[in-house]
Every structure is written in structure tokens, then in C-alpha cells.
Design a protein around this nucleic acid. Structure first.
Lengths: 366, 366
DNA sequence: ATTGCGAATGTAAGCGCATACAGTGAAGGT
DNA sequence: ACCTTCACTGTATGCGCTTACATTCGCAAT
């Protein structure tokens, strides 16, 4: 059975294809009786309009693309599951502090926000996750299918971005600004970290904080570090005298840092981490080692991931509004599609400093 | 600047549009020198092929649709955030046991699995989340854009499903089988629950388990309950004599159940819950009330969500391979697209019983 | 130099729809 | 009775690409 087209519906209900099209797109332009007849045919024939044809004719697709970089490199362990013979396995699951699954909530939330905002405005969402070294094929593919594309962080090389942006508008989420040609949505990294650090300096009289940095090429981390430095300066401390531990945003690697720190024998009063994962990595080591948090050392993170809310002690951190990031990006895109000529807009979403037990002790109240 | 088309590229590089098309689709059919010339033009002109036109001409879109029901009805609280004046707010975040954000990890993971499998096979993914009462517009819209559609649980009414399935193949995830016309992927709910319950009955000599059920119309819960009953029967217990507490899968409501249970003064040896959320709700109440888990009462869940791995005590549960569910669904779809005539296939993914402290005590070892 | 033949390229016909424009008919005006 | 007007419907074109088929080219074999 071939799938039905406008022609089939038109023939079946005795009208022209133009009328069928009108019934679907602008029902009020068609007499009620005609409309009913056509809709009946649609039903009978199981007609679903081809979006390809429509997009081609209408010169717009009604789809927005969303492109993420990939963090979870768990990848190809997977085949085995499908060949399994038993339907149930029983496993005694011992506690461990490692990450069992990659905490990708970040993307998930951005996705959720975007998806919602897109549909609200009549757009569908197409998602792509960049894996491996060369996202260009995928990005190009998506770019050809959509009216606009939202790109996370630095998941796409500049050159490629320039290329696709000649066809469709591009909105960037987080990461650095690229030139000044794209709309850009991000969070107040600097302000958030500054506020958190100032809190430690002012309320807790910390005089020797140490910054636990992310990868050197992370623009987010750079912004956060800047906030840290600003707080130091505002408090009259010399940033040059404050040590920085170089991490890579990963929990595992942060454990190593913690061990080195313990081995060195000199613990600062506070460890300010560039993200939550690293902070959790420190906690993983300090707890068993008998180092009390926050009595012996204050630990703070950045991101506001769920795991930080469930850790012991719970993690003081700066919460980023991920869902809102997605929504804001989508709004920027919609605005851009409506007003193609408006100058690029940059928006910063506010963050929230969450003071919890890893800095405040159990007696809450900064 | 109009966006470039094949015609522009063809003119620019002095070939016909057919050759341009070949360079992009079947590069080997074109002489290397010509190919290079065309690619150069592509680059210069910023040409990105229109997927609409291609899909129309090729009679396939290269996109698979994925449709979820919505659980998070947090929805429209949201506007305020964008109007905020301050970039940072400082909040003393006191601990609470409630769910701060909806644990939608379920979908997230299915999505991740699907997305990955789709791209691996050269398909893009379009996602839709059904909100509100009438998903038909959205489903129809998606159906017109894709080569096949994966639908979660009972998010789409049968009638609509039948309609779109006349145009494209449909694969169902979880939920009940619909007729016998669709490919269907689910997990071993019954077997998993049976194995878990048998463990309690056999190893822990539980003789009076109580089942905490989900909503009466949940087919998943029904399957799980069946597993529970089978275990009882296998152990020679009469299922009719075993009480069932009716929950609704929510954590909040489960707390109420727990309180009623405490008020009644009669705690069974084990509470077997239809999902993790409810089990966590019970723990929320038992802990503060001084009821020890598992010493006073064993609590188990179902799903294997992250929160159950981070609770105190950690939750014994049956873990569903969500990512694999997504992948399996996508595989079923790809197989269907390749062999449209093959009879509908049903596949069940294995589950994993995770024994943790909410049933085993701290001295691990069943 | 011809012939033959595969490789490379061009020609042209849609794919299914939206939409500008033209046509039709009935109602209203004179 | 004739002209407008308006509401509705039909006709015809093209969106940008793929692909069957026709054509031409390069070059080895004759």
C-alpha cells in the first residue's frame, strides 16, 4: 500500500489538491461542508502530510536543531546486553563512591528546556550529540534539516559554525563568545563564583583559599576563576599568592589531587572547586581519611548537580539554571528567526549560590 | 544573501547539478579533480544541502521520531527567571527529603540510548514530549517528518497510533502490547520482581510481605505485581492473603502510606514497592520515625534510579536497562525499515536485581 | 585512424506540497 | 436584467534535490 498524498485525498473527496492543502493549513478559508468531507477522506486514507514536501514548498522546516558535545564516552561496551540469555541477574551491589553512570544531567536539562520552548512556539526539535573527533558530518546534516541551530559550548569548530551559519541562524550556549556574530546565552559564572568566594572570605574569615581549576582550555572555568580572583582582590588579598590546583573537571582525577594534598600535610582552610564533580572527588578522599568537612576544610563546587545535593556532607555550590538555559537559547533563536536583521544578542542567566553543609557546618546560617 | 543551492554550486564550478549531487552522495562516481572543484565551490558558497528537498526526492528522510509522554508538570512556573534583575542570589539551602526536580532520568536515558543507536546507523533523531491532553497534533507533525517513530509507553492513543502507522512503522517501548501489529520492546518486569521477592522469601524467611502498588492502570505495575504473586505461590503462600497498598508511583504519596502504616501499628517484615520513588517515600518517613531499615522492615523498589543508589540506606531494587531500552527500540525500528514485511517482533530486555542495604543490612551477602 | 566500452557527466522528470493567480457562482446592488 | 462583490475553489508553477536514462569522453584494443 503506497502512502497517501494530497492527490489521493483530493481525488477521494472530489476537490483539488489546493483545497486539501487549505483544509490542513488554513481551515477557515474552506467551506465547512467541504472541510468535513476532506477531513473524512484524510481519516479514511490514513493521510499524513509529508513534511519534506511542505518544508520545501514553504521554504521553512519548522524544526530547530540542538547540538551537544558528548561527555559520556561509555560508548561501545554495549553490544553484549542484547545477546543475554537470562532475563534476570541477581547482583549484590556494594557501595562505592565512583560514578556509576556519567552525570549528564546537564544536557538532559538543557534539552528539556529547549524542547518545551520549541514546541510551545510550533517548532519541532532535532537533537544531535557530537561523538568522536569529527562532528562536521552530523552538524551539516542537521543544518540542512532545520530553520536554526542551537549549539552547546564549543562542540563545533569555528569554521564549521561559520559555514552553517551562512544558511541558518546559530545560537550558542555557554562557552566563549565566538567573534560577535552569534547570539549567545550563558550563565553568570564570574559573578556566581565571586559571590561564593566572598562569602567564604567574609563570613568564614578564610584567608588562604585554594582554587581547584578545571582544564586550562575551559572558558567556563576561566570565567569562574576570574570570579574567584575578583573576590580575593576585593578582600585585599593578592591573587598571585594564592595557589591553583589544576584538575580536569573529573571526579576521579580530583581524588588524586586530594591525596597529594593530604600527603603534603598542608591543608588550606577552603578548597574552591571549578565544578561539582571535582568537589565530590575531594569529599570521596577526605571522608575516609578522617578529614572533616567543613571543620577541617571547606569544600565548594560549581554547577549544582544532583549528586552534590545527596552527598555527605551536602555540597555548597553555585547552581546553574540548566533548564532555563535551554529555554533562553530557544527564545533567542525564535527571536532571531522573526527578526533576522537584529544585532546579535548576548544574555546571561542568573545563578544561585547554594550554601550547604560542606561550607556551613550543620548549624546552618552563614 | 540567498542561501546557496545545487544550482549555484553547479554554476560556480561549471558542472551540472547532477554532478554536484553525486559529489555529495556518491563521491566515488565522480572524477577526483571534478570532485575537488565542486567541493571548493561548496566551501566558497557556504552551501548546505536542503534536507527537505533531498528527503522529498529520495522518498526517505533519514530521521527517526521519538515520542515521550510527559511526567514533569512543573511547566509554567518559568517566565520569571528571564526578568530577573540580580545575577546572583545567595540561598541557604536546608536539607529536605522532597524531590527538588522531577527525576525524569528514565526518559533521558532512553533518549540517550536511542540517539546513539540512531546516529550510528545514519539516522537523525527528532524528539517530542507529549504534554497536556492532546498529543495528536504533535504526533502527526512528527509522523510527517520521519521514516519511523518510536513511542514510549501509552503516550499516544491507539487510534492516532493506527493512523500514523499507515504511513510509517511504529515501535513501542514498555507499556502494554497494542494488538499485535507493532514491534514492541520492554523489560522483564515480572521476572525481575519475582526474583527479588523470591530472594526475600527464601533468604530472609519473610512470610508476610506487603506489596506497594502503583496506579491501577499501569501495565508495568501489573506485570510487576504478577511477579510478586508468582513468587508467593512458588513459596506456597496464598497471594489472596497478602495485602496490597495502593500507591500512585509518587514519592510524596508514598509518605502518606508510610504514616498510615506506622499509625496502624502493624509493620510487615517487608514492603515490596512497585517503583523506587515509592520506596524512597517510605524511607523518608521510616528514618525520622525511628523505624530501622532493614532491621525492622525491609524495603525494596523497582527501576534502579540514581536516587536509590544515594539514599540511606541504599535501596535494593530491580534495575532496568534504560539506555539499552532505547537502543533496542531503535534497532527494532532499523530492522523494520529494512524488512518492512517481517512479522512484528517483541523483545524483552533482561533486568538486574540489585541487593543493597535496604534489604541486606550492612553485612552484605544475601 | 577506428571501434568499443566503461567511466564520467549531462538531461530531464518528478518527489508532495504551498501559494499566487485565475476562475466560478451566488448574493447584493442598481 | 446587468454589474459588483465576495467567498470559495481550481490551475499551474516551483521549492531543491535524486536518479533513470541518454550522452559524451578517454583510452585500450584492433
Amino acid at each position: 500500500m503506497k502512502t497517501a498524498t494530497v492527490y489521493d485525498v483530493a481525488a477521494h473527496s472530489g476537490v483539488s489538491i489546493a483545497t486539501v492543502s487549505r483544509v490542513l493549513r488554513r481551515p477557515d478559508d474552506v467551506r465547512a461542508s467541504t472541510r468535513a468531507r476532506v477531513l473524512a477522506s484524510v481519516r479514511v486514507l490514513g493521510y499524513v502530510p509529508s513534511a519534506s514536501a511542505r518544508s520545501l514548498a514553504a521554504r521553512r522546516t519548522g524544526v530547530i536543531g540542538l547540538f551537544f558535545p558528548s561527555i559520556d564516552d561509555e560508548d561501545d561496551h554495549a553490544e553484549a546486553v542484547f545477546e543475554q540469555d537470562t532475563q534476570v541477574r541477581i547482583v549484590v551491589d556494594i557501595p562505592d563512591t565512583g560514578e556509576v553512570r556519567p552525570p549528564n544531567l546537564y544536557f538532559d536539562e538543557v534539552l528539556r528546556g529547549s524542547e518545551r520552548e520549541a514546541w510551545r512556539h510550533g517548532f519541532a526539535l532535532m537533537v544531535g550529540v557530537g561523538r568522536g573527533a569529527d562532528p562536521s558530518a552530523m552538524v551539516n546534516d542537521i543544518a540542512g534539516r532545520v530553520d536554526g541551530m542551537v549549539v552547546l559550548a564549543r562542540s563545533v569548530p569555528d569554521e564549521l559554525l561559520d559555514h552553517v551559519s551562512r544558511r541558518i541562524p546559530v545560537v550558542l550556549i555557554a562557552g566563549p563568545r565566538r567573534g560577535d556574530d552569534y547570539d549567545h546565552v550563558s550563565v553568570s559564572n564570574t559573578e556566581g563564583m565571586r559571590a561564593l568566594t566572598e562569602h567564604l572570605l567574609d563570613r568564614h574569615r578564610v584567608t588562604d583559599p585554594v582554587y581547584v581549576a578545571g582544564p586550562a582550555d575551559s572558558p567556563d572555568d576561566a570565567e569562574r576563576y576570574r570570579g574567584f580572583v575578583e573576590a580575593l582582590e576585593a578582600a585585599g588579598l593578592d591573587p598571585a599568592g594564592v595557589p591553583v590546583l589544576r584538575g580536569n573537571f573529573s571526579r576521579v582525577q580530583a581524588r588524586t589531587l586530594a591525596q597529594e594534598l593530604l600527603a603534603s600535610g598542608r591543608l588550606p582552610r577552603a578548597l574552591v572547586c571549578g565544578n561539582d564533580q571535582m568537589a565530590l572527588g575531594l569529599l570521596d578522599v577526605f571522608g575516609p581519611a578522617g578529614v572533616r568537612v567543613p571543620e577541617d576544610v571547606i569544600v565548594t563546587g560549581f554547577d549544582g548537580i544532583e549528586a552534590g545535593r545527596l552527598s555527605t556532607p551536602r555540597l555548597s555550590t553555585v547552581h546553574q539554571p540548566m533548564v532555563d538555559l535551554g529555554r533562553a537559547a530557544m527564545r533567542a533563536m525564535l527571536s532571531r528567526l522573526e527578526h533576522p536583521e537584529q544585532p546579535p544578542i548576548t544574555s546571561r542567566l542568573p545563578v544561585k549560590v547554594l550554601l550547604r553543609e560542606s561550607s556551613e557546618g550543620s548549624g546552618i546560617g552563614g
